[in-house]
Amino acid sequence: MRITAVQRNENENRIRAAMDRLLRGEIPPGGKCDVKTLAREAGVDRTAFYGNRPYTHLRAEFERRLQDLQQAGEIPDPREAQIARLKTENAKLKERLTESEQTIAELTDFRAQALARLAAQHEEILRLRESVAGTSRVSPLPPRSTVIGTRS
């Protein structure tokens, strides 16, 4: 079915109005900032945007404007913006997790080294006590409770 020039002009105006709404972030429930939603909002068949159909230039304009907004850091679709934000947050959390795991590994290694040093020092103290015990001229004092004449 052929459309008249007036109908085509009206369709283009509806498409441009829908395009502006979508690119401002006015996404209808269940829709996205894409050609399918653009066609539905404008009330035109989606196939009219592809091949050598009458509105391919409007699809190209829509995609170019959407890409320009995305390159400028603006994402008109709130869901797409949320997805981008969550992906960034996920990447940061993965980085923090990797850093935490590395820190835990370093601290575990440090703990093992510290325990080994303490054990070696304890062994050295015991060895020194044994070596001093046999050669010392100092006699040990009796326990305090058996010492006569001590003041409390």
Score class of each variant (00 low, 15 high):
residue 106 E to D: 12
residue 107 L to D: 09
residue 117 R to L: 03
residue 121 Q to W: 03
residue 123 E to S: 07
residue 141 L to R: 07
residue 111 R to D: 10
residue 137 R to Y: 02
residue 106 E to K: 15
residue 117 R to H: 01
residue 130 E to T: 09
residue 111 R to A: 10
residue 133 A to N: 01
residue 124 E to V: 07
residue 123 E to T: 05
residue 134 G to H: 13
residue 107 L to C: 09
residue 135 T to F: 10
residue 112 A to M: 09
residue 115 L to V: 04
residue 120 A to T: 02
residue 140 P to Y: 13
residue 112 A to P: 15
residue 135 T to R: 13
residue 137 R to S: 11
residue 120 A to H: 02
residue 129 R to I: 05
residue 110 F to K: 13
residue 122 H to T: 08
residue 135 T to W: 02
residue 105 A to E: 15
residue 124 E to L: 00
residue 111 R to N: 12
residue 116 A to S: 03
residue 108 T to Y: 11
residue 113 Q to T: 12
residue 141 L to W: 01
residue 107 L to I: 05
residue 137 R to W: 02
residue 131 S to K: 10
residue 116 A to T: 02
residue 111 R to I: 08
residue 115 L to Y: 07
residue 113 Q to Y: 03
residue 123 E to Q: 06
residue 118 L to Y: 00
residue 109 D to S: 15
residue 129 R to K: 13
residue 130 E to I: 02
residue 121 Q to T: 01
residue 121 Q to L: 01
residue 121 Q to A: 08
residue 130 E to C: 00
residue 127 R to E: 10
residue 114 A to C: 03
residue 113 Q to S: 08
residue 106 E to Y: 06
residue 106 E to G: 07
residue 113 Q to K: 11
residue 123 E to I: 02
residue 141 L to E: 09
residue 128 L to T: 13
residue 115 L to W: 07
residue 127 R to F: 08
